[in-house]
Design a protein around this nucleic acid. Structure first.
Lengths: 128, 128
DNA sequence: ACCTGAACACTACCACGGTAGTAGTACCCA
DNA sequence: TGGGTACTACTACCGTGGTAGTGTTCAGGT
């Protein structure tokens, strides 16, 4: 169990999401996947990937002249890091307070509420 | 409505929490409140407070020879920033996915589930 | 009147996220 | 074989969080 991943940059998160969606991707592919909203230079993405590899977030393997990058950390770990950080730091570990906060500061549709309801019931059943 | 507060440092968060707990606090008091886990130099806290004031997170007023710092941003705003960031970036805006994640990666007690249940029901009633 | 201690001010330094330019390299195509 | 092209490597720069030392000021006690 490595130390929790807390504090990931925005770009890093976006990159990881691209890599989670496919087993491996070239720099160009990552750039594509990431650059929908903001166009980034090819070298920017490449540099970020290299930095992330040093940090152990991704890894690469050579494929011809290109590098194929893959995510090393899973969405689980990153999510856990982020989520725990949110819950712990901001709401003193109170899950309900956190969710309450999420509920009240966002637009919530009835469908989402129904889905949440189902979620809770399922969790309840699982616990006993 | 100022721009959302996204990305606050750990220390900054801890400082804010101290300031939210009381209307105003001197540097020494903040240092006390913050330093339970890790002892920080007085000057470190003071510097951080000054930086945070520049950024508009806190403000100070003079009281004798001491500064009394107060939080400018509320827990609401910070929470919104953080929460939105979590939901948007990591879970593509899916609230249910986020909550699901929080549920599955943490120990959840029966009481918490009941409380969450109540929360959802209340929100449902509010919406229709 | 002097010394001490508390308080802020200024400065410095490191790490890292983010961004990108430039340089080197190797492949492929005409 | 020469030239464009695609790719990585290296370097640089800025902002900011985090940490703290040094400098300065000023009030209070003796």
């Amino acid at each position: 169990m490595s130390k929790p991943i807390h504090r990931l940059g925005d770009l890093q998160l976006r990159i990881l999401k691209v890599l989670w969606a496919q087993p491996a991707a070239t720099v160009a592919q990552v750039q594509q996947g990431v650059g929908s909203e903001s166009d980034l230079a090819y070298t920017t993405v490449a540099t970020m990937l290299r930095k992330m590899e040093v940090r152990g977030l991704v890894s690469h393997r050579e494929e011809g002249r290109s590098f194929l990058y893959s995510a090393v950390v899973g969405a689980e770990e990153v999510g856990r890091g982020f989520g725990t950080h949110l819950v712990e730091r901001l709401f003193e570990g109170s899950l309900t307070e956190t969710v309450s906060h999420l509920l009240t500061t966002r637009e919530v549709s009835r469908d989402e509420l129904d889905e949440l309801d189902r979620l809770i019931q399922r969790a309840k059943r699982r616990i006993r």
